[in-house]
Design a protein around this nucleic acid. Structure first.
Length: 181
DNA sequence: GGAACGATCTGC
DNA sequence: CAGATCGTTCCC
């Protein structure tokens, strides 16, 4: 039984919301997977795209919670975030890794049989076919991309550590991961 | 107008 | 461990 993740779960502070997204399900078409690693980014956070204020690129992060913020980086990759917090705040949770559950065959094709289907922020976008056309998509409503709950609670003791691939606020421990069983 | 720099991934 | 590759942002 799948229930949609309610927007109310996402309106809190990004570092608080991030661990709650662990074990939730990301669904796009026939592709479904469990979120196992995330990172929180906040407006007052030097590592966040919103640190220097609102721009056309990061506008979605300042919008209402529960929408998808998709950005392009390194000239070739897309990464996706769940917008959190009250409207106007500029915060989000980066989806870093997903455990594929359905649609594995399509994901393999989209990944061109390379190792690691969705164990990286850009890899999961490729596997789930998430692109710029999904920037701003509502994850709590509609028939496109969505966040769902299958009753599996977030882990009691998530792994917590510093975020990866950033050059500012390197020591802030806002990366959360589902412990390996 | 120009330059620097990525919330990454891959292949060597 | 360095290269790929280009949009965004910032500085002159």
């Amino acid at each position: 039984m799948l229930r949609r993740v309610p927007r109310s779960l996402l309106t809190g502070d990004a570092p608080d919301v991030a661990p709650l997204l662990l074990n939730k399900l990301l669904v796009h078409g026939d592709c479904l997977g469990r979120i196992v690693e995330v990172e929180a980014y906040r407006e007052d956070d030097p590592a966040s795209h919103t640190f220097r204020g609102e721009t056309p690129r990061n506008a979605v992060m300042f919008g209402p919670a529960g929408h998808l913020y998709v950005y392009f980086t390194y000239g070739m990759h897309y990464c996706s975030n769940v917008v959190t917090g009250p409207e106007g705040r500029g915060a989000a949770v980066l989806l870093r890794a997903v455990d594929p559950m359905s649609g594995v065959e399509v994901m393999r094709e989209r990944r061109h049989d390379r190792p690691g289907l969705a164990d990286g922020p850009a890899k999961l976008c490729q596997a789930f076919a998430i692109g710029p056309e999904h920037n701003g998509a509502d994850l709590c409503r509609g028939s496109g991309i969505g966040l769902f709950d299958d009753g599996t609670p977030p882990p009691d003791g998530p792994l917590v550590g510093p975020r990866i691939g950033i050059s500012k606020a390197v020591d802030v421990p806002w990366r959360f991961r589902v412990p390996v069983v």
